[in-house]
Amino acid sequence: MRIDFHTHIIPENFPDFEEKFGGGRWPVLKRTCTCGASIMVGGKNFREVTDQVWDPEKRIEDMDREGVDIQVLSPIPVTFSYWASAPQAAEMARIQNDFIVETVAHYPDRFVGLGTVPMQDGPTAVQEMDRCMKDLHLHGIEIGTNVNGKNLDDPSFIEFFEMAEKWEVPIFVHPWETLGRERMPHHNFMYTVGMPSETALAAATLAWSGIMEKFPGLKICFAHGGGSFPYIIPRLDQGWKVWPHLRLTTHPPSYYAKKFYFDSLNYDPLNIKYMIERFGHEKIFMGSDYPFLLREIQPGKVLDESLELTEEQREAMLGGNAAQFLNIEKKKRGIVHAGSTNAGE
């Protein structure tokens, strides 16, 4: 069984919040043809998307062709809208969360969902997380690597992490609003350099700051193989060692890094081998970043090409680890083989 932990989705009838609320930062979906659209921000093309990003039937066709049994659906990070007022961002989150739940309900054997919350306001974020988990029965929450430039150790996020630990909510951390983006106007470096660096900063923040020591039960997975974080851990540890006056934790960052989870989207078996040696194969899930251009095709390709894996390790990373992380019930794990849509069952 293969579970693609990292895929994104948006409603086809995504509302125009720019028209409703004003302001030039809302993402707006503008159809360009019957099979595609542009995500516009401030009147400029932010990203071209195909109908795979909203059409579950197209997704299932791809899943069947590529051997994926379950996709984990999460919002596109540009829709987080942390910069907006809490009530407006909460409305944006609710629309997407309801759409994801509806999609899962129509194809319960093929999809599970992650929700989004307005992280710019702690109580509102907790309220929507509560709704996502208790009313909508989503399987986790996706958040950004920063909120309006605040790193994830900001005191305003303590309540969110406290309740996420208490309610055992899986958290998927995805890069957005990358650091240094003003220096990356060319070559699409925002995606290839900025995002890995942004993810490293978020992971290092949680490992160094004491958040993981304060809330040891947090279940946190980082996108894109953790970006560059796995490779700077020795340097973080050296800093912790030589600057004792900056220490906020009992142990060095590498100790808390072993509590994290990561998707497998780093494209290279050598990197997978390194991550297994550092974190253990139990902490890695297959994830492709479907349906965007940088996605891995076929999903799980890097794991299939990692020849030194045992069959047990490979099967765990292709599906079993994600199922356990997301608390996917046995009835969903016992699905029929990819090829049956089971629409509406």
Rank of each mutant, 00 (worst) to 15 (best):
I220D: 12
L236R: 02
P196V: 09
M195N: 15
F160Q: 07
T192W: 09
K219H: 13
M212V: 09
T205H: 00
F215Y: 15
E213K: 09
P175I: 07
G144K: 02
H224P: 03
I211R: 03
T205A: 06
G227A: 06
S156I: 05
D153S: 06
R235F: 00
G217A: 07
E198F: 00
G194P: 07
T205V: 09
P234K: 03
P253Q: 06
N148K: 14
F222Q: 02
E177C: 03
T250N: 11
V173Q: 10
W167F: 02
W176N: 01
T199R: 09
E198P: 01
S156L: 06
G144I: 01
R235Y: 00
V169A: 08
W176C: 13
K219R: 12
D153L: 02
W208P: 01
L152S: 04
W167C: 05
W208V: 06
G149C: 07
I220H: 09
P155M: 05
K214D: 13
P155D: 11
L201N: 14
G227K: 04
Q238Y: 12
G225S: 04
A207N: 01
A207C: 15
H245W: 08
F172M: 15
I220S: 05
W208N: 08
S254R: 14
S209W: 04
I171R: 01
A164T: 08
L236I: 02
A207V: 03
L248P: 05
A202G: 04
A200V: 03
P252Y: 00
V193N: 04
G227F: 03
I158Y: 09
N151A: 06
P185Y: 02
S254L: 14
R235T: 00
T250R: 12
P216G: 06
F215H: 11
G140T: 15
A207K: 06
T178H: 13
H174E: 07
E162F: 08
A202T: 14
E142H: 02
